[in-house]
Amino acid sequence: MSIRKVIDWAVEDKLSQKVGNIASPFYQLYDLDGQWMWACDVDLGDEEVLRCVPVASNNRELIYAEQGRSVTLSRLNNGKWVITGLAKSLKSTVHYIYLSFTEDLYRVTQKLLKGYYIRPLTYGELGTLVPPYGYGVLPYGAQGKFKADGTFVEIMEYY
């Protein structure tokens, strides 16, 4: 660990805004202060989804925010993240370029596309993804999470 890394962490901690995608329907959360509030899970583009993120109260912007929408998260003084509004940008896929260094030389060894995206399932997918298969098992409009290369990962929650 270097001082630089410690400084990087400190800078990261000071970041007060993030952008993420709503990854679940809204639900009510009973917080530690004994209050009921609306919350949802937020996908920040990492492996794990950020769970139980409360919605800042009196936010009229979020009236029609739904699963998959891009939202801005702000950090409160106590270090917790809350959803504070809609964002015009959306987390997406990531290009990875791997380099190897040997002596005076470097070489690009691999290029990969990583990340996930969420989209409504097609008619074909609606009837073939979940047993007992066939149409009607999944409702029209159900959404699926896919890897950047198109590989199906999971069905998102739906009503």
Binding site: K91, L99, S100
Partner: peptide
């Protein structure tokens, strides 16, 4: 219907040393 909106996708390109373990990354 299906509500939708337009958004600029926030994309990333990451150049990384090959064979680097996650806990060794200095970003």
């Amino acid at each position: 219907g299906t509500p939708y909106d337009y958004a600029y996708l926030e994309k990333q390109s990451i150049a990384i040393e090959e064979g680097l373990d996650y806990w060794l990354e200095n970003e």
